[in-house]
Every structure is written in structure tokens, then in C-alpha cells.
Design a protein around this nucleic acid. Structure first.
Lengths: 205, 205
DNA sequence: GAGGCTGTAGTCAAGTTTGACTACGCCTGT
DNA sequence: ACAGGCGTAGTCAAACTTGACTACAGCCTC
């Protein structure tokens, strides 16, 4: 799973209704073009594809205000919302080493409730620990690790990286349990990470 | 850049001459199907594509010994060898967070000379440090990190991960400078990570 | 007021990735 | 002896990704 669907669904959802260029701008504002495959082609492709699959509803819109070709606006459907939360939960839970998906998940983490987030992240830590154990066991046969030559360095890197990931996740869990941020159902103002309609993007490329 | 071209070129090179299924088996033996996109379709596609581009030379081969359809054998051309070393050097140097490319690079690291490897890895560490600095500066404007809300956790994760990567790389440099492994031009038996013709794969899926 | 620059919005072809599928020959049990 | 499973070797369509390209409106400049 790549991060693009989660990112696009999340961006459209935060606007309520958005066209491709708006999504593109939000993702750039979040720095997503640097840590994921959020390029124009992928974004427009994802929008069309998800509209075809009923996750988004496409409105044909008249020629744009503010120059440029006519544009299409999208809205998230109920099915799309379901998919969004499924992707979000998966992004926070799975321990597969893809940073882009996890980053996207963190970006939308406050759409879930605090208790659930803690539980998902704990599952993530447990997954990482289990994976670490299986790698160290599977790839060090009786002859000892030296039998693998420099190939052993690859396993070493995985293990190192799993450890670092687990440690960072534990820190995040501690901050969240300590009361940081405002999550769904907590009444406070949620942090909104989208650009308002006229606002210029301070992080433009 | 994905890891597949480096992996395929490296596998063919170690055999001298190999068909697709052999490459596929080597990559599975290295566990590459777990940490990269080394699936059958990608492997065969890469072989054909690189043959078309003159990096590999394709020999049409008679119906296989040992059952199955006829097979095509490939050999690395001079141009392919050039490309191989370019990809290998890049894999070891660049600090972009993709684990699969780095893993592939480690797998072939002994094809370079020890001094060059140390230099490439040092470049990698310096790149990570510079990137870390730019992230912490770029994404913490005057208002302080809190202005980003939970989005700041994404930067925090990047930084954490860059630190872990740098630390691991420094450890590897130390081991290599301490004399570990046998590199190109050092006369010893290089570690060979391919399956011999009749050998069965102990790590088959 | 014509020409060019900039910003808005999106398209397109080429390349890559995925996962399921085909095709063939050997072997094994009955 | 032969049906069915297994291993060998590879193909294919559908989806996704990439990076360069188009098209249009407003604005600035001369």
C-alpha cells in the first residue's frame, strides 16, 4: 500500500469538498512531496480512480474562478470515509518499514480517539518486536551469523531500524498518554492542516 | 530509483550468465522479496527492459533442461557493468530514506574497494547530518515547533530515523575500517551469495 | 495593446509494479 | 499406464507512478 490514497482522501475530507489543485497544494504544504509519491500525476490519478470506485463523488464544475482550465471538485462518500479510517488504522499499526505511509498516518492521527491511537501504536510496537525476533532467529542459523558474510549487515540494519522505530513509537505513545494534542471526541479545536482558500503556501517548492 | 535494477544486474553478474528464474531464486535466497519489490513480474520486466537498453545481452536458449518452458539467458554488457557500479555507488551514498536500495547496496558492497566504500559511507553520514539540520531548521519557524501541532511528530520521526541511520552507518564504517570482510582487490575469497546450479534454496517461501 | 511572464489546473505517454495466471515436464501412487 | 500434483519458467492485464507537457487567464511592460 502506498501513501497516496490515504493522503488524498484525508486532504479532500478536511476541505469537505476540494479540487485536485487544492489537494496538491495541501500535500505540498505538509511536505508530502518530499517523503511520499505525492506528485501531480499520482494525485489526479488517485482522485479519478477513487471516484470510479465510489470512494469519492466527482462534481463537474464550471470554468474556474482565478484562471486556468475548468476543474472538478470531489467529496468523500460514506464508502470513502470507511476506507479512509481503514487505511489510517492500518498505517498506524503495521510495522512494515515504509516511512511514507506511517508519516501520512501521523498526519491524520487526531481523527481517531486517543485511546484507540494508543492501542494501535502499542500493536505497532508489538509487531516490531515480533518481527525483530523472527529476523534474528530466521537469519542466524546454527553456523553463527558469520556464515552470511557481509550479507549479515543487511539483517543488522533491519534490526537496528526496527529498534529505532520501536523506540520512537514508545516515545510517541508516552506523549499521547501524557495528554499531548487534541483527538477526536475531545471537544477542543482540532489542529487543521489545510490552506484556506486565499492563503498562500509558505512552503511552496 | 527502485532497488530492482541493481539487484538484477548484481545477480546476473555474479553468475556470469543467468536466466530469469535463477535471478528470482537468488533474490529470494537473499530475502529480497521481503524488503524490496523483487517479485517475478518486476524481475522479468527489468531483464527485458535492460536488455532493450543494452545493459544486458539476451541469448535465446533451447527448451530448458529440467522441465518448464524454454528460457532466456542474460549476460551483463560493458555498459551494464558501468551502470551497475553507478547504481551501487549511489545506493551506498544517498541518504534518502529508502531501505531497499541501501540493502541492495550492502549486498554488493564487496564489489568495491575498501577505501572507496569507507568514503562513500562517510558521504552518506554527512548527507544525513545535513538533511537533519535542514529539516529541523526548515520546519521549525520562529513560532516554535508547537505551531505545527501533531504534524511536528512527522518531522520528529524523520529526525529520529536520520539519527538512527547515521549511527548504524558509523558502526558499519568502524567494522569495515577494522578489517571486516574481504573487498575487491584484496585477493581473498569473496563471499559468494548465489545458489549453485543444483543447490536447493534453504529460504524458499 | 502585443508580447511575454506567472500562476492555476490538469493531461498524457512511457515506464514500472502487482498478483494472478499459463504452459510444460517429471514424478508418484494406484 | 496414466491422472494429478509439483517444480520450473515465464506471461499478461490492470493498476500505479513519473516527469514533461498543455491550456487558459490575469498582469506587467514597453
Amino acid at each position: 500500500m502506498s501513501a497516496i490514497r490515504l493522503l488524498v482522501l484525508g486532504a479532500v475530507r478536511q476541505h469537505g469538498r476540494a479540487h485536485g489543485y487544492q489537494v496538491r497544494n495541501d500535500l505540498e504544504y505538509w511536505g508530502a512531496h518530499e517523503w511520499s509519491n505525492a506528485k501531480p500525476g499520482s494525485i489526479y490519478h488517485a482522485l479519478k480512480q477513487m471516484a470510479k470506485q465510489g470512494l469519492l463523488l466527482a462534481h463537474e464544475i464550471a470554468p474556474s474562478t482565478a484562471g486556468g482550465p475548468p476543474r472538478t471538485e470531489y467529496e468523500v462518500t460514506d464508502k470513502g470515509t470507511e476506507e479512509y479510517f481503514a487505511l489510517l488504522r492500518e498505517a498506524l499499526t503495521t510495522y512494515d518499514q515504509k516511512m511514507d505511509v506511517l508519516s501520512a498516518g501521523i498526519g491524520f492521527i487526531v481523527d481517531l480517539e486517543r485511546a484507540e491511537v494508543v492501542e494501535l501504536l502499542n500493536r505497532r510496537v508489538r509487531g516490531l518486536e515480533a518481527w525483530r525476533a523472527s529476523v534474528t532467529e530466521y537469519y542466524t542459523p546454527e553456523e553463527g551469523p558469520e556464515s552470511l558474510g557481509h550479507i549479515g549487515e543487511i539483517m543488522n540494519m533491519w534490526v537496528h531500524s526496527a529498534d529505532a522505530g520501536a523506540q520512537w513509537t514508545r516515545g510517541l505513545i508516552a506523549r499521547i498518554e501524557g495528554g499531548a494534542y487534541t483527538f477526536a471526541g475531545e471537544g477542543g479545536d482540532p489542529f487543521v492542516g489545510v490552506l484556506a482558500d486565499g492563503q498562500e503556501n509558505p512552503y511552496a517548492s
